[in-house]
Write a protein that binds this DNA or RNA. Sequence first.
DNA 1: ATGCACTGGATAGCGCTATTATCCAATGAT
DNA 2: ATCATTGGATAATAGCGCTATCCAGTGCAT
Lengths: 216, 216
Amino acid sequence: MMRISELSERSGVAIATIKYYLREGLLHQGEQVAATRAAYDDSHLRRLRLIRALLEVGRLPVAAIKQVIEAVEDESLPVHRMLGTAHHALGPAVEPEPGDDWEAAGAQVDRLIGEQGWTITPEAPTRDELAQTIVRLRQLGLPTDLTRYAEAARRLAEAEMDAIPFDGPRESAVEAVVLGTVLYGRALDTLRRLAHESESARRLAGAGEDSPGERP
Amino acid sequence: MMRISELSERSGVAIATIKYYLREGLLHQGEQVAATRAAYDDSHLRRLRLIRALLEVGRLPVAAIKQVIEAVEDESLPVHRMLGTAHHALGPAVEPEPGDDWEAAGAQVDRLIGEQGWTITPEAPTRDELAQTIVRLRQLGLPTDLTRYAEAARRLAEAEMDAIPFDGPRESAVEAVVLGTVLYGRALDTLRRLAHESESARRLAGAGEDSPGERP
DNA sequence: ATGCACTGGATAGCGCTATTATCCAATGAT
DNA sequence: ATCATTGGATAATAGCGCTATCCAGTGCAT
């Protein structure tokens, strides 16, 4: 049990910001102890860490975080619906760019999902997200065969899901899924860029030029 | 050869926005035909597509795109330096969060890079990016073993690099590297979320509840 | 019980980014 | 000759994530 100032110190989040999160419904209210005093506990601290991770590492907009949290807190939602809602909040919303390109990309997304044997809601915004990327790849003349990526994604996702406590309290499950999706997603992205850097250094930095990483 | 209005129509980017990109140095000036008339060509159209892809798909801030483009246009830069600069602009800048956690995470990043046999500049901001993610994983009690991800990243990055035309014009090489990094990165991320959705549906949607994707 | 730091609550303002709008004088097509 | 368009400059806008200010009520130390 603590007051707002202690919550602020322990979390590293400014008081004004905490108030803002309270207003926005990202952070649940503390226990009203008196008219002008409320008490916060570890659940608030944990929630703040969740928010900051989604915000700073996942770069989710506050509105998306709110959706995730609402899904968590809506007890009437069956778990897999809750996960769906949370999941759909994680991707940036893209609006369709109508045209032949878009149609073709959509078909390709369907085909890819079919090939992998995935089960995906027809309304999943994630489909449009992928379609948009494919459209851009096409426009720029880059190869659009994503099978290799889909397979890597599948392998990683399966391993991650094995670690999710689906039998525990519902809050743990969403948190684990959402945090896993976002944080490991970012880790993967960063690692891929590191691998790129290393590969291009290896292939180019011969020929007498100094190579990054080893200064004379 | 076209005027600004045609460039706008063909690219789908508003005239005012094109002027803005010209001001910001993202888009090179058109050929001055008369005091109040300039001519644009396919290179401008292509550049606009690059900008929009980095902006909308890659979600890079305009300032980062500018850095990328400056690297491309600085002819005096050796190719691998140019790629390094461009690459470092792709990641969001993170500032270190000093403390023991940070130190430990840094050490873990070094170890991971070593294990994979990668060659990475000591100053690469990408290192800090990864360190930050590891710190957050720790704070939230999630496993921090990223070996599996590093290996997947390495495999994908190697395959991508095989497709880069390092022997062609330098502009092609950066464009390919940057676009590849960003667009396939996003594709991978989206696919991983799709795989997650599918996996959690598969594991949870039994038990009489209707499963996403098949409505009665 | 008194003075003072702290609280919740409400509202307003800020700093940044990406974009859009407005004006202008010059100009080229009809 | 005229009228829409252009380049160029400057201002205005919208959204977001905070941050600051003000307020009256309250707990705590003295």
